[in-house]
């Protein structure tokens, strides 16, 4: 759960995606292979080595209007191809807080 703010080197140990927050409303988004952003993790472009990750991140950073704060986050890809967040932080970003909120939405 190391904060991506501390992410100094791009070094990935497995499948990863680029994630950010959409500029106008802040929701969590993922960079897609179509060079766009999607709120659906299953649509994210998966990278598997540092060079791919660097390229995807660079392209994401260049889209400064669409989303802010892009960084590389680990994912797990199941045998069926289903993509899941690779750590608790990303799980929380995807599915929301782990606690009941005072007002249910």
């Amino acid at each position: 759960m190391t904060s991506p703010l501390e992410q100094k080197k791009i070094k990935i140990a497995g499948p990863s995606v680029v994630t950010a927050n959409r500029t106008w409303d802040g929701i969590v988004v993922y960079r897609t292979a179509a060079k766009s952003w999607s709120a659906d993790l299953s649509e994210a472009a998966i990278v598997r080595n540092s060079d791919e990750a660097k390229a995807l991140l660079a392209e994401s950073v260049a889209d400064d209007v669409g989303a802010i704060g892009p960084y590389i986050a680990p994912v797990q890809v199941g045998a069926d191809g289903k993509v899941e967040p690779g750590n608790l932080r990303e799980q929380i970003r995807r599915t929301g807080v782990t606690i009941g909120q005072p007002v249910q939405v």
């Binding site: 759960m1 190391t2 904060s3 991506p4 703010l5 608790l88 932080r89 807080v97 782990t98 606690i99």
Partner: peptide, 17 residues
């Protein structure tokens, strides 16, 4: 904590609860 904060490393609120 980690339920909301981008700086957090761990959750606080569930511990409090």
């Amino acid at each position: 904590g980690l339920d909301y904060c981008s700086l957090a490393n761990a959750r606080s609120i569930p511990i409090a609860q």
